[in-house]
Design a protein around this nucleic acid. Structure first.
Lengths: 196, 196
DNA sequence: GTTTTTACCATGCACTCGCATGATAAAGTG
DNA sequence: CACTTTATCATGCGAGTGCATGGTAAAAAC
C-alpha cells in the first residue's frame, strides 16, 4: 500500500472531512482527532499529510475556494447570454438548497475564522478578486450586449452584487429568509440594473 | 459586598469580556476560564451569573444586538433628512474605523456561530427584523420626502441594503477593501436609488 | 537480498476544557 | 444575637486538545 498513494486524493479526502465537521458541529468542533475519525483514518495518517491544525484548516479553506470556482464555472458554461451567466452564478452562491447551504455554512465559518487567522486571510484575499473580476467581466459583456445599462460601473456593481450574496447568507441560514425570498431579492436587484 | 451587587452591570461586564476575547483571539478561544481572566474575576464568579458556556455566548450576543441598536439610534438622532438617516446608519454598521471593526469582528463571529447554535439563531431572528424594518421605514420616509424614487420597494431595498452592509464586512476586515472603498460603494448604490 | 523510502499507526505528554461541588465571608433579617 | 441569603472562591474530575515520538509493514531501489 505505501508509495502508490494519490496524495492529492488524500488531501481532498481530509479537506472534505473537515468540511463535514464544520457543517455538522461548527468550526469549534474541528480537531485532529475528530477530523481523523470523520475521514475514517487514524490520527497519525492525518498528521502525515497535515502537520498542524492550522494547515488542516487552510487546506479545507483552499479546497472550498476551488470547489466554489468549479461550481461557478460549471453553471456559467450552461448559460447563453452574459446576463444569464450573471444571474445563474450569483444564484449558485446563495444557500437555496441543501447543497448550497452546505457550502455556505462552511464558507461563513471561514469568513469568521479568517478574520483571526492571517493565513486564512491571505487565502481569502487571493480568492476574492477572482470572483469579483469574473462578475465585473460578465457585467461588461452584458452591457456590450445591451442587456445591462451602459452607465453602470461594472467594478462597483460586481462588488455590490457579491456583497449582497454574502450578506444574505446568514439571514437565510438562520431561517429569516426563504430561498424564494432570496431569489426574488436578486431578481429585483438585477431588474433595476437593466432599466438603467 | 454581597447582596448589593448590580446584576445587570455584572452581566454587561462579563459580556464585554467575551467580546474582547472574540475580537482578539476568535470565537474558538472563548472559554469560561479565559473570559473570567479577561473580566478580572474568578471562574466561579462568572459561573454564578452564567451557568453554562452557551448562556455566556448568548448573553454576549444579546448585548451586541443591544449595542448596535443603541449606536444606530444615536446616529439616527443627529440627522435631519430620512436619506441622511439611512446613509448614516448604514455607515454605522460598516467596519470603517477601529470601533466599528471591533463590532463587526464580533458580529461576524456570531453570524457563523449562530448557524450551529439554535439559541443564537433565535436571537438572530429576533434582532434582524428590527433593523430591517427600521431601514424600510426610513426608505419610505425618504420616498415621501421626494429623496428616493417612489417606485422602489422599500422592504426589498432595505433587505438589499442590509445584505450589502453585511456582505462587505469580511472582505473589508480581511483587507480587500479600504474604508474609503466601502463608503464609495454605499454612496454609489444610494445614488442609484435617488435617480429612480 | 539487503537497504531505503513511504505511508501509517499507537501512544504519551502537558495542557485545557466545561461543569459540579463544598467551603466561606459579607450583608441583610428576625 | 442567631440565621438565612447572596456573592464569591478554590478545587476536583473526566474528557478532550495539539503535537511529538518511536515503531512498523510494505513497496521500491540497488
Amino acid at each position: 500500500m505505501p508509495k502508490i498513494v494519490d496524495h492529492e486524493a488524500r488531501r481532498r479526502h481530509i479537506a472534505e472531512a473537515v468540511h463535514r465537521v464544520i457543517h455538522d458541529k461548527g468550526m469549534e468542533s474541528v480537531s485532529l482527532r475528530v477530523v481523523a475519525a470523520e475521514a475514517g483514518m487514524s490520527m497519525g495518517a492525518v498528521q502525515y499529510y497535515v502537520t498542524t491544525k492550522d494547515q488542516m484548516l487552510l487546506l479545507a479553506l483552499e479546497r472550498i475556494g476551488i470547489w466554489i470556482g468549479e461550481r461557478v464555472a460549471a453553471v456559467a458554461a450552461h448559460q447563453s447570454t452574459p446576463l444569464d451567466v450573471l444571474r445563474a452564478t450569483v444564484l449558485e452562491l446563495l444557500p437555496l438548497d441543501d447543497e448550497r447551504s452546505y457550502l455556505n455554512r462552511i464558507g461563513l465559518a471561514f469568513q469568521a475564522s479568517s478574520v483571526v487567522s492571517e493565513h486564512q486571510a491571505v487565502a481569502m484575499r487571493l480568492g476574492l478578486p477572482l470572483l469579483l473580476s469574473f462578475f465585473a467581466e460578465q457585467i461588461r459583456a452584458a452591457q456590450a450586449a445591451g442587456q445591462l445599462a451602459a452607465h453602470l460601473d461594472a467594478g462597483k456593481e460586481a462588488s455590490i452584487l457579491y456583497a449582497f450574496a454574502q450578506g444574505v447568507v446568514n439571514a437565510t441560514l438562520v431561517g429569516h429568509y426563504t430561498p424564494e425570498d432570496v431569489a426574488a431579492l436578486l431578481d429585483y436587484h438585477l431588474a433595476r440594473l437593466c432599466t438603467g
